[in-house]
Amino acid sequence: MAAPGEFLRKRSRADTAPGPGSPPAPGRDPARSPARLRAGTFWLTRIALLRALAFVYSVAFLVAFRQNKQLIGDRGLLPCRAHLGRLLRHFHGRVGWEALSHAPTVIWFLDWSDMNAALDALSLLGLGISSFIVVTGCANMVLMAVLWTLYMSLVSVGQVWYSFGK
């Protein structure tokens, strides 16, 4: 008959480090756990980081929505229509790679007749997408790239007002 201490040592050793042929401990089967919940996947860090980034985007788009018309709108202090017109004349009336690399904005492809509506649409679309990510936590590369593109579109025509964001 084995001594009681020897039995306890074998038992504790078996719980902490099971051998290759031993069955896994009940309730701790790593093969059956979802892939996103396994150790080393950083799923919680990813969710927290992307929600925090989406919150920052939502604040930025909300500020842009509130201030764009007064700063860079049709009757703003530095209208972006005049800025894009100067760039268009500089690049000989063509929106090519040179113009897009100098001012990367989707406003090049929008209607310039009502710039306030275009700026509001960009801001509200970005605010909607970022708020969706903050609330649901569902974010992927496409949504984050769209947010970056929308914000870069506002920053690149913001001139002095958005020069800190470049």
Rank of each mutant, 00 (worst) to 15 (best):
L77I: 15
L49G: 11
I107H: 01
L50C: 09
I47P: 02
R66C: 07
S33T: 15
R75E: 06
R51P: 01
P26H: 06
H83Y: 13
L84H: 02
I72P: 08
L53R: 14
L87M: 12
L62Y: 10
R86H: 09
G40F: 00
L84W: 03
P79D: 02
R46D: 06
L62C: 06
T41V: 14
H102W: 12
N68V: 09
D29L: 05
Q70V: 06
R38A: 08
P30L: 02
H102F: 14
R46M: 05
A82K: 14
L84C: 00
I47V: 13
R46P: 01
L62E: 06
R28L: 14
H102E: 13
V106H: 09
G40A: 05
F65V: 01
L50P: 02
V63M: 08
F65I: 00
F65L: 12
R94S: 11
R89M: 12
G27A: 05
K69V: 15
P104L: 05
A103T: 14
G93H: 08
A39R: 03
Q70D: 12
W43E: 14
V63F: 12
G76I: 04
A103F: 05
Q70G: 15
S33K: 13
P104N: 03
I72V: 15
F42L: 13
T105G: 01
L49Y: 13
T105W: 00
L62H: 11
N68S: 15
A103E: 01
R75D: 07
F55Y: 13
V59A: 05
L50W: 04
Y57Q: 04
R51N: 01
E98K: 15
G40C: 10
W108V: 12
V56Y: 11
Q67R: 12
F55N: 10
L62I: 02
R66P: 00
R86K: 13
A39T: 00
F65D: 02
P104Q: 01
P26M: 08
G76P: 01
G96Q: 01
F61Q: 05
P34W: 00
E98T: 15
I107D: 04
D111Q: 09
N68K: 08
G85A: 15
R32W: 08
A35K: 12
P79M: 03
L88W: 10
V59D: 01
I107K: 02
V95E: 01
D111I: 04
D29N: 10
V95P: 00
W43L: 09
A103G: 04
S58V: 04
R38G: 07
R66T: 10
V56W: 09
A39G: 02
G85T: 15
A52G: 13
R94P: 04
G73N: 02
S33F: 10
A54D: 06
N68Y: 05
H92Q: 13
L71F: 07
L44G: 14
G27W: 02
R32S: 15
V59H: 02
Y57W: 06
D29A: 03
A48M: 12
F109G: 07
G85M: 14
F109P: 04
L49Q: 13
L77R: 14
G73W: 05
L88C: 08
F42W: 10
